[in-house]
């Protein structure tokens, strides 16, 4: 069933869109622009990759944007108010994100809330939490103090690949941001988890047929909580790179990010009906949205039109997903 959706059409579409803008928008195919794309959308891709897990379970995680803000503010407070060293903040931040995500899973499994309702509630609660722990409110002068801890700020690093390969004199390659390298590692690890471990198989089973999975003896509760925890941890990772890029955290960080993440995941071929999808897809989906946004901006197209375009692409992706689902149904039970 996992193979129902091939990512090849997505890759093809990505290349097509990329080529279109390369020919029409000046400076689109420049090294600097690619650099902007990689550094500006790696964090969106991380959110989308995390979002894939709840959606695979026929769920959704609306709280990822709020988790980004909570983790951002925890980093801010620990570093600027409590002076905690950066090497300690990084794991704490990731754990906090995973815990916030796990709480979503617990609400879904044990309180039996609809994922939409559960994560909508935590979205509001986590946003409130951000305001109440905001170091910017507690110590007003911190709102104009940038973070300086090298462990955190160091996450915003670029690698000059062209020079490393010794070809910088021949072709100007974009510098690769550390966030993109981290994203590649994240995708590799999670794709491996999804396709080669017991947990991955269980996840597809639960998402495809919950009752069947339960009867087959799969620990549905554990799988669900773990999936939401992964989403939270990915949001925390995204928050770290975002905070490094901005040198601060704000209360409004990540507002609306959940919608972009869900859009990227769906465009990336994760079926909202559950049980179908990859991790690579959402990452490509995120960059596809990025290519469209940057390309249209460089073309001088109004941003309202850009938002309409994003909506149209999302609709197209969902329709495509429905079409595939219908075709499978018509072909008869695949079991």
């Amino acid at each position: 069933m996992a193979g129902r959706y091939s990512i090849l059409p997505l890759v093809g579409f990505f290349i097509l869109v990329f080529a279109f803008f390369s020919f029409t928008a000046t400076r689109f195919a420049s090294a600097t622009n690619i650099e902007n794309l990689l550094s500006g959308f790696s964090f969106v891709a991380m959110l989308a990759v995390g979002q894939a897990f709840p959606i695979l379970l026929r769920g959704i995680d609306l709280s990822v944007g709020a988790i980004v803000a909570v983790v951002g503010m925890i980093v801010f407070d620990l570093s600027l108010i409590f002076g905690v060293p950066g090497w300690l903040i990084l794991p704490v931040a990731l754990l906090a994100g995973a815990a916030a995500g796990a709480l979503n899973g617990v609400l879904v499994v044990y309180v039996r809330l609809q994922p939409f309702i559960a994560t909508l509630a935590t979205l509001a609660a986590y946003r409130g939490l951000v305001y109440s722990i905001s170091g910017r409110q507690l110590v007003p002068e911190l709102s104009t103090t940038p973070l300086r801890d090298p462990w955190i700020i160091g996450l915003e690093t670029y690698f000059d690949v062209g020079r490393f390969l010794g070809i910088s004199s021949i072709v100007k390659l974009p510098w690769i941001p550390l966030s993109f390298v981290a994203l590649l590692a994240l995708v590799a690890v999670l794709q491996l988890v999804l396709s080669a471990t017991r947990f991955g198989r269980d996840l597809f089973a639960v998402g495809g047929n919950l009752e069947g999975a339960r009867l087959a003896g799969i620990n549905v509760a554990r799988v669900t909580v773990a999936a939401y925890a992964i989403s939270g941890a990915c949001a925390a990772l995204a928050a770290l790179f975002l905070v490094a890029r901005l040198t601060t955290a704000t209360e409004a960080l990540g507002i609306g990010a959940e919608l972009t993440a869900i859009a990227a995941a769906v465009v990336g071929g994760v079926s909202l009906q559950g049980g179908v999808g990859t991790v690579v897809g959402p990452a490509i989906g995120a960059f596809l949205l990025g290519v469209i946004l940057l390309g249209l901006t460089l073309l001088g197209v109004s941003q309202f039109v850009q938002q309409i375009m994003t909506g149209v692409i999302l609709l197209a992706a969902i329709s495509y997903d429905r079409l595939l689902a219908l075709r499978v149904r018509r072909a008869g039970p695949s079991l």
């Binding site: 400076r27 964090f43 940038p146 901005l246 601060t248 704000t250």
Partner: peptide, 28 residues
């Protein structure tokens, strides 16, 4: 803020002469 940052970078890439900015946050 992240959209503003992304737009700033796009304008820098385009070689804008001047950028007017109403920043959402002073530090970010």
């Amino acid at each position: 803020v992240e959209v503003q940052v992304s737009l700033m970078e796009a304008l820098i890439n385009q070689g804008a002469s001047v950028i007017f900015l109403q920043p959402i946050d002073s530090v970010a």
